[in-house]
Simulated scan of single mutants.
Amino acid sequence: MDSISNILDTSKPSLYLSLFAIAFNPTVWNIVARHEYRNKTITRIFGGDPYKGCYFLAFMIFTFGILRDSLYHKALEEQPKVAMLPEPYATLVPAVMFVMGQIFVVTSTWALGVTGTFLGDYFGILMDHRVEGFPFNVLRDPMYVGSTLSFAAGALWYERPAGLLITLYVYIGYIIALRFEGPFTDMIYAKREEKRAEKKD
C-alpha cells in the first residue's frame, strides 16, 4: 500500500472531481444528443433551427471540456510528484506527445467542421460523404486519440504518475463512448441511405 500511496493520493477531492468530469462529458453529451435525435428538444428551443441547436451544444461541450481540463490540472497539482523519465526526455517526450495530440484534435475538427465534430448528425445535419483525409487516413478516431495523448503528456510533463492512471481511465471512457456513438451514428446514416433509395424507386 505504501508504494501506491507514493504515486496516488486518494484523499484529495480534486482527484474525484477530475474523474467525475471526465466521465460526465461523453456520458451526458451522448444522452443529450440521442434525446435530440428522437425528440428535437434543443432544435425546438432555437425555433426549429438545427444549426443553432448544434452550435449551442458545441459551445456547451467546448466549455465543459475546458472545465474538465482545468480540473485535471488541479488534480495533478495535488498528486505526488515522481520523476518518470530522465532528462532531456522528461520534457521532450511530453512536449512531442502534446503537440501530436493537439494536431490530431485540431485537424480532425477542421476536417469535420463544427457540425461534424459536435454531433450535428443527431440534429439531422449529415455530411455528404465520409471524411477520409488526414488525420482520418491515419486514425479512425483521431480526436479521442489526440485527447488521450494530451492527458498523458500532462502527466509526464508535471511528473505525476497518478496522471497516467487518470489517462487510462480517460482511454477506457472513450472506448465505452465509441461503442455507443459508432453504431448509433452508423444507424443515422443508414436511415438516410434508405430514404434516398426509396426516393429513387
Score class of each variant (00 low, 15 high):
S70F: 08
R192A: 04
I125L: 14
L119A: 11
F136V: 02
R179W: 15
P135C: 06
K191V: 08
Q102S: 11
Y189W: 00
F136Y: 09
S5F: 09
F46I: 11
L168Y: 06
M100V: 15
G101V: 09
P13R: 03
G173H: 08
V93Q: 07
L76T: 03
R192L: 02
F56G: 09
D2L: 04
A33D: 13
F24D: 10
N30R: 08
F118T: 09
Y16V: 06
E181G: 02
A153D: 02
V138W: 13
Q79R: 01
C54T: 07
T41C: 06
Y51I: 15
P135S: 05
F134C: 09
S3F: 09
F118A: 05
L156F: 07
I166M: 05
L119S: 11
F104H: 08
E78D: 10
H73Q: 01
V131M: 04
Y72T: 00
T91F: 11
K200V: 12
L139F: 14
F136H: 06
A33N: 11
K52H: 14
A90Y: 01
V138H: 04
S108V: 03
V145K: 01
L165T: 05
I42H: 04
F184H: 14
Y16W: 15
M187G: 01
D2I: 08
T41E: 04
S14V: 03
T167R: 02
S18Y: 02
Y16M: 03
F62I: 15
D9Y: 07
G47L: 13
L168K: 01
W157M: 14
N6F: 10
G154D: 07
A23Q: 06
R179F: 07
T63R: 01
M143R: 11
A95Y: 05
H73L: 09
G163V: 08
I125Q: 09
M60C: 11
A83N: 14
F24R: 05
G53V: 04
R196F: 06
Y144C: 07
M1W: 10
P50K: 09
R140Q: 06
N25K: 13
A153P: 11
D49T: 12
E193H: 04
S5H: 06
E87Y: 10
T148A: 15
P80H: 08
R34T: 13
G133P: 00
Y89N: 02
I4A: 07
M127T: 08
G101M: 05
I22W: 01
T117G: 02
M143C: 07
T109A: 14
I22S: 00
P142V: 03
D9M: 02
W110C: 01
A197Q: 15
S3L: 09
V96N: 07
L17I: 12
V106N: 09
K81T: 12
Y55M: 12
V99W: 04
M1K: 13
T43S: 13
L92Q: 07
F136P: 02
D49R: 15
G47V: 10
G163H: 05
P88N: 04
V82M: 12
I166A: 00
N6Q: 15
G154R: 00
P135M: 07
Y171H: 10
R38G: 01
E198A: 15
A83E: 14
F104D: 05
E78C: 01
E87C: 00
Q79F: 11
G113D: 00
T109S: 14
F62L: 15
A197S: 14
A162T: 13
M1C: 09
L17D: 02
T10R: 07
R44A: 15
T115Y: 10
I188W: 08
K191G: 00
L164H: 10
